[in-house]
Amino acid sequence: MVKNRNLKYLSAFVTVKRGGENMQPRERCWIVGAGAVGSVLAAILHQNRTIETCLVGSSVHAKEIQKNGLLFQIVDHKQSTVPVRVISPDQVPILEKRDIVLMTTKMPLLDRTLLWLRPRCGPEVGVIALQNGIGPEEIIAHGLDRPVDRGLVFFGANSPSPGKVRYFPGTIRLRPSAVTETLCNLLKGSAVKCGLAKNFREMEWFKLAINCIANPFAGILNAGNRQIAQDVLNPAKELVLSEVRRVAEAEGVSIDITVKEMNRYLDSDNVPSLKADLDREMPTEIDVLNGAVIHLGKRHGISTPINRLLVSMVKFLES
């Protein structure tokens, strides 16, 4: 999604030492959601020989990886083929204490995912929600009837064609727990920097603010990150950010980012996922991004007309 810049939100995290006393040993990692983010994590975790990694999905992209391997490219590096293991949801066994599940399923597809996953999750499985938006772990916890941990993806990923994924290096920030500490240790020394966030709630709103601009702008304008970062769009970005900031403050969170700083985050060749979803005629996540700002704004009596405008325009493009 964004480049890793040295703002306080991304620098405020706890470095995890390998083998921490709270760490739960895991032997298998199941990445549920074979999109761009899930594919990147599968490729990177595949390099860790201490855990068996499996990507779960049944899309055309997943089937191409299953057949020919994942064509994986870190931006500015050569492409390589990674023999990622892929299985369909019906092939997932009963999961137990030795398993960790990374939820990367897009939010519009989450309900049907939870239907097949719930009967397969034993009581000691570690589950981490990595989706966009505010509070997806609460939805997943309700659907699975179990506690769920939470993480935020601060890296870019896109799939230009089935079986291929491009990775724009960045970070993952996790809400501290024994399960998320385990993931940090699994990713230690890899191409994805990972840490436990001291200020997770603020970071969650920080990412939402960026997504509420980058994603709808990309879809409506048919543009990539670098185009969205242009100063000519700054007045529109200011209006969106002002509404998000007011709602966040009503929720007890201060968002300390300027449009100029946001433009630096967006200055890459990545393409926001909402545009990719529209290009593939798939449902977007607009309801959990700008839609979440509208919903929470209503709760606090805060008007959000600019976010309403963006949602209505994206809904038109979806239809």
Rank of each mutant, 00 (worst) to 15 (best):
G156W: 01
G156M: 06
A157W: 00
N158H: 09
P160V: 05
P162L: 05
P162G: 04
G163V: 11
G163N: 08
V165R: 00
R166A: 10
R166G: 06
R166M: 12
Y167L: 11
P169A: 07
P169Y: 06
G170M: 00
G170A: 00
G170E: 02
T171I: 14
T171L: 13
I172K: 00
R173M: 14
P176M: 07
S177G: 09
A178P: 13
T180G: 07
T182N: 07
L183S: 01
C184R: 08
C184D: 13
C184G: 11
K188I: 10
K188F: 11
S190F: 03
A197Q: 09
A197M: 03
A197G: 08
F200Q: 13
F200K: 10
R201T: 15
E202P: 09
M203D: 15
M203W: 03
F206G: 12
F206P: 08
K207C: 02
A209Y: 01
I210K: 02
N211A: 12
N211Y: 07
C212Y: 03
I213P: 06
I213V: 15
A214T: 11
N215P: 00
P216G: 06
F217V: 02
A218K: 05
A218E: 03
I220W: 10
I220Y: 09
I220D: 01
N222D: 12
A223P: 04
A223T: 03
A223L: 00
G224E: 14
G224W: 05
R226W: 08
R226L: 12
Q227I: 14
I228L: 15
A229M: 08
Q230A: 14
